[in-house]
Amino acid sequence: MTAYTATVTVRLKRGVLDPEAETTKRSLERLGFELSGLRSADRFEIDLEADSPAAAKETATEMTERLLANPTIHDYEVSVAAAGQS
């Protein structure tokens, strides 16, 4: 078993309204910044032991599908690196 860190990024699907991002964008504009869009995402860093990077990714993907993301509104990405290198 090797120590890995899986990085999971969960974001709203394109087309799903993101009121928090809209509010953040408006606040940046109030500060005088010019921007044409803003999207936010949640990032999870999961430390876990696995036999291989592929096994670590499989476990992290299952964690994401079962809890971290809601497939109705979210897309997600999972990447894996040796622990301490992510």
């Binding site: 799903v16 309204l17 009121p19 928090e20 809601n70 109705t72």
Partner: peptide, 17 residues
């Protein structure tokens, strides 16, 4: 209920946040 799949869809952040 929606998160558990008892019902379809999701209830998420209000339009006006």
């Amino acid at each position: 209920g929606c998160e558990s799949g008892l019902t379809e869809g999701a209830f998420t952040t209000n339009e006006r946040a």
